[in-house]
Amino acid sequence: MPGKIDSEIKKEIAKITMTASLGVAVITAPFLKRNKLMKNIHTGAGVLLAGTALWHHFLYHSEKKSQKALSAPDKPKA
């Protein structure tokens, strides 16, 4: 396995994690009143979804910043 993970792979991992955690939250929702374990799993899936959504946002945000920095013209030295 290479030392660095490509940013596109990180984005795909974030998307897959968000999809899986949303699926777990949806599946466990009907069982919230009857089972404490399901309530804890549902809450954990929600926290995981929020965390990966934030990570996913920052993956795209950092890419835009680096593109702006690369496209800025160099100032001539006096």
Results as ranks from 00 to 15, higher is better:
K68D: 07
K65N: 13
I16Y: 11
H56C: 05
T43Q: 11
Q67N: 07
G46F: 00
I16F: 10
S71Q: 08
D74A: 15
H61G: 02
Q67Y: 01
H56Q: 11
V26L: 14
I9K: 08
E12R: 13
P2T: 04
E63K: 13
K36R: 14
P30H: 03
A50C: 07
E63M: 03
H42N: 13
L32W: 05
H57I: 07
S66C: 02
L37P: 01
V47R: 05
T52Q: 06
I27K: 15
L37C: 05
D6G: 03
L32H: 06
V47I: 08
K68Y: 09
H42L: 01
S62H: 13
I27V: 15
K39H: 09
E12D: 09
L37I: 13
P30Y: 05
G46Q: 09
H56R: 09
A20P: 00
K75F: 11
S62D: 13
I41C: 00
S7N: 13
I27P: 03
K11V: 08
T43R: 15
W55I: 08
S71G: 01
G23L: 05
K64H: 08
N40P: 00
F31C: 06
R34L: 12
H42W: 05
A20R: 06
E8Q: 14
F58D: 12
L49T: 06
K65I: 14
S21L: 11
I5W: 00
A25H: 05
Y60G: 11
L59H: 00
H56F: 11
